[in-house]
Design a binder for these strands. Structure first.
Lengths: 110, 110
DNA sequence: TTACATACATTGGATTCTTATGTATTGAAG
DNA sequence: CTTCAATACATAAGAATCCAATGTATGTAA
């Protein structure tokens, strides 16, 4: 489990990237995917996820679609074109950030 | 200039690492060093720096020493042993975080 | 029938940084 | 000789982001 401060500013990028790679996803699915691909080190809580999703929807980065499963309702999120463009940009930004940090912290870029 | 959200949670690590590598440093010097080693992409503002330094001093990670230069006073910061131990840990944490993020974002680790 | 996993959501609070502001000295340029 | 930029410290109000806690409800396995 990483110290959570480091995650600040990256959650949106993570969520957007997952949606780009996997097409539509629903909230709970996103938490599980993040958990598994990060080998349990990033635990995306609901208190962080849902507000973030709602915000991105309001900003026009995502669209939603409700799907009924018996009595339960799932809410699927899909990237808009704006969202799709932004992901690429955000990921590049993050890569650049890592590069800078490697220099500043004098880490061997591995 | 990186989008500043990414920096959240990393500033303390950066400051501590610089102090570990350079021995004692004063505030303004730290801002300049960060600016130059990051090739102008990380601009550590005073509003972020000084509160951070004061906090770390209060936590026992740093000690201070005032040096007079004519009428001006410089405040030098040095790592305590606690601080020194923490840096190593923090840097490792950050390296691990990058590794995880590379996986999650499917970046080639370079 | 109890407990855990699935699935949505909100709210209050902590933390962190930014923007703006303030004070004062030193040095360079005009 | 004065004005502007750089040096050097600092605080304070506010925005933004995330976490912990809480709430509701269904499905499933023991």
């Amino acid at each position: 489990m990483h110290s959570t401060e480091l995650l600040k500013g990256t959650l949106q990028t993570i969520i957007l990237k997952l949606l780009q790679d996997n097409g539509k996803m629903y909230g709970y699915e996103i938490t599980q995917k993040v958990k598994s691909t990060s080998e349990e080190s990033i635990m995306l809580t609901e208190g962080a996820l849902y507000p973030a999703l709602h915000k991105m929807e309001a900003e026009g980065l995502l669209t939603t679609e409700k799907v009924k499963l018996g009595k339960r309702v799932r809410k699927y999120y899909t990237l808009t074109e704006t969202g799709n463009t932004l992901v690429t940009q955000k990921v590049k930004e993050f890569a650049a950030f890592i590069k800078t940090m490697n220099t500043v912290l004098q880490l061997s870029p591995a």
